[in-house]
Amino acid sequence: MFGKAQEQPLDSPMTRYAGPGVRPLTRVLIGPPGLPLISVTTLAGLLLLYGASAPGGYFMTSIFGGLLAMGVAMVWAPRLLVGLVRADGRPGLRRHWARWVAIPLLGTVTAVLLTFDTSYAVRFALSEKSMEAIARELVAGGKTSADPGWAGLFQVSSVERQGGAVTFVLEDTGFLARYGLTWSPDRKPGVDSDASYRHFTGPWYEWMERF
């Protein structure tokens, strides 16, 4: 009877492997991951990627994304384990394997993107031209509109000029330090400052100053 059931939309109660007269929570626990769990997993992944999309990262966003991801794992893994162990759980796992796989797949994609700093690289690549234009304008003696405001896709709290170098201090990044990006086409910046610099790409350096 279950094998001939019509395909139902994602998260429909009819797709749950249970008979009538069963409580809603029971249906959820023995059913495959539904739209809410998959949505929360996606949200956790997006928060983690956003949290790592700037030098120093966004601390609170990363913490919240990490807690959400941990919550998803705590809901998903025990349900899968019990479904695998029980004979009446395995047919449901086979039937809805795609939904069961969706959660670890999203987790793996997020982990790979985080490992290679993809969100940071993409955000910087999309912002580089705007930031360089602002930096050149400031070095040439012009005024900038990015103080405070946006430089490309980065929200900046201030733009500071030191000789031929320009530092974009990024809003809300880091935990016990301020982070930013420095454009310095002529030389490595910071030989005469307390801040530390790390080469990022081309004329760009990651800037960090402890509180």
Binding site: L29, I30, R86
Partner: peptide, 8 residues
């Protein structure tokens, strides 16, 4: 989850 399977 074990209880849910038993209830079902």
């Amino acid at each position: 989850t074990v209880l849910a399977y038993q209830e079902a």
